[in-house]
Amino acid sequence: MAEVLLEVRNVNKAFGGVVTAKEVNMKVEKGEIHGLIGPNGAGKTTLLNLISGIYDVDGGQIFFKGEDVTKLPPYTRSRMGIGRTFQSPRFSPRSSIRDNLLVGTDLDNKMGYLSSFFGKKGADFDKEFEELIKIAGFTFDWDERINSLPYGQQKLLEIIRAMLSHPTVMLVDEPCAGLNMEEQNRVKDLLNKGLEQGMGIVLIEHSMEMVMSVCHNISVLNFGEIIAEGTPAEIQSNQQVIEAYLGKDEDTLAGGAHVGN
């Protein structure tokens, strides 16, 4: 069994009366893409926010490489190696593309404000970026503002930014929403590249075709509870999952329909 990078243990979270995480348990191993699926409002993004530290847990613990990170602030967690992307890309629209992406490299280099001011250069940013952008399959002008790019390219760039910081665990929130087929394939290639580098990846995705083809394991969330866990094949044949989420018609599964949204 591969090394467990991330472990969520009995985590609870409620906003007022709305329970978004209830005794959630999840393990992510090295070299694994762990899918997180469920209907809208099931608590998928909340779970990512709990893991990256944007929300505090009400109860339970989160372990990263065996270390309890439950009480640590988000920036410490990302410095330790928990990277993430967002449902809609969160860049600085007023900064250039270069500045936006360099932040990822800065994180990887453990850059300090003073050392950077006095001219410390990071690792070879261009070479690695070159490799990743080749996978993403488009080109652009470095000095342009990031929101001049099409939405799909921004989403790909956000994954690249997270990858530039060399996270141990990467949390990817709906990378394929709003992307065309070609771009979805690029996302797949990028995630596989991440696996090659030895990451563990948590993937939220509504596209069943994507989830079933790239994930090694899948957790199904419904009303904040994990109702099933297993390999894609097991999930597809799990009666409870089919009823709660995937729909009773088996054809939807095979056809790879977008559920939710």
Binding site: R90, N100, V103, Y113, S165
Partner: peptide
């Protein structure tokens, strides 16, 4: 660069180690 991130999205900045 870090200030730019904080200006436009504090949460995203935190998730980039800032």
């Amino acid at each position: 660069r870090a200030l730019g991130c904080v200006r436009d999205n504090e949460i995203a900045a935190q998730c980039m180690g800032i």
